[in-house]
């Protein structure tokens, strides 16, 4: 067992002409010199604004894209090695599952249970095992009552839960959520986040949540900020979000509470304590106000 499930060394990627997501046809690297190590069972958030390269990173970790420079180790195996073959890719994709942004575009089948079965079917598992995994994955995301439903009749959050079940059914060690909450309503988002956290806590699955919602990132154990294809900040949320100035400079904001306290401090009001969550922010304000009164 390798301590780091994912490890990258000097990882870089440049879209060749015609493949670029941006309209500018210059060869600007989407990612460069990324050194990132993810521990087994970690809950990591990757932050960055649009075009920062965070989705490219996800696609590299899943070998949808092949890095132009650098190394990636998945579970200790160098997947960027010359002799790494198709079976190896298959193995990596089994270990590293990925949930995408648009739930509609990742559901393959016309019936929920058949969609969840798609991954295990590709793994060539026996039918009884597929059945078991479909049932357990669907109940893990609370969709067991929708087994025979048509996906297009579900809500966005429900579809995304089915998509997650489809990944869980492959029993991956890592699940990368590539902006999986971006297209959902607040309720759907909350559902997906709670599933994500439960999978991490109860099943020990390593979760990488790629997002641009600060509140989501603040819930993770560790936050990585990517800006212009470079790893800019890396640490526990408390540390990362204390760099409010730096976050502003790269077009991101801290969570609302942190932001509020930061601005109050700038205005000369000396509030003490951290304010990562709304709760902490409220407490810091109360402390300050009651301290003033004395």
């Amino acid at each position: 067992m390798n301590e780091y499930i994912i490890k990258t060394e000097g990882l870089g990627f440049t879209y060749s002409d015609g493949e670029s997501d941006s309209l500018v046809r210059e060869e600007i690297p989407a990612l460069s010199d990324i050194n990132l190590s993810v521990k087994r069972g970690e809950y990591l958030a990757v932050l960055g604004h649009n075009g920062s390269g965070k989705s490219t990173l996800a696609k590299l970790l899943n070998l949808i894209l092949v890095p132009t420079v650098g190394k990636i180790y998945i579970d200790g195996v160098d997947v960027t090695a010359e002799d790494f073959d198709e079976d190896g890719v298959f193995d990596v994709r089994r270990k590293v599952g990925m949930v995408f942004q648009n739930p509609d575009n990742q559901l393959v089948a016309t019936v929920v249970e058949e969609d969840v079965a798609f991954g295990p079917e590709n793994l060539g598992l026996p039918r009884e095992e597929i059945r078991r995994r479909v049932n357990s994955s669907l109940s893990m995301v609370g969709m067991q009552d929708y087994m025979r439903h048509a996906p297009h009749k579900l809500s966005g959050g429900q579809k995304q839960r089915v998509a997650i079940a489809g990944i869980i059914a492959m029993r991956p060690e890592v699940i990368i959520f590539d902006e999986s909450t971006a297209m959902l309503d607040p309720m759907g988002r909350a559902e997906v986040i709670s599933i994500m956290e439960r999978l991490n806590r109860e099943e020990g699955i390593t979760v990488i949540n790629i997002t641009h919602y600060m509140e989501e990132a603040a819930r993770a154990e560790r936050v990585v900020v990517i800006n212009d294809g470079r790893l800019t900040l890396d640490g526990i949320p408390r540390e990362v979000f204390s760099e409010v100035e730096l976050l502003h400079k790269i077009g991101l904001e801290a969570p609302q509470g942190t932001e509020l306290v930061h601005r109050l401090r700038l205005a000369g009001i000396n509030i003490e304590g951290s304010s990562l969550t709304e709760q902490e922010c409220a407490e810091a304000l109360i402390n300050y106000l009651s301290g003033n009164r004395k």
């Binding site: 696609k59 990925m98 597929i130 059945r131 990944i167």
Partner: peptide
């Protein structure tokens, strides 16, 4: 766009045609 995203999602779920593929419903 959908087609491309779906293809990526299918690849991520280890799809590689009917090579060594089993079926839930036989």
């Amino acid at each position: 766009k959908r087609a491309e995203e779906l293809a990526t999602a299918m690849e991520c779920r280890c799809y590689r045609g009917d090579k060594n593929r089993t079926k839930l419903v036989k």
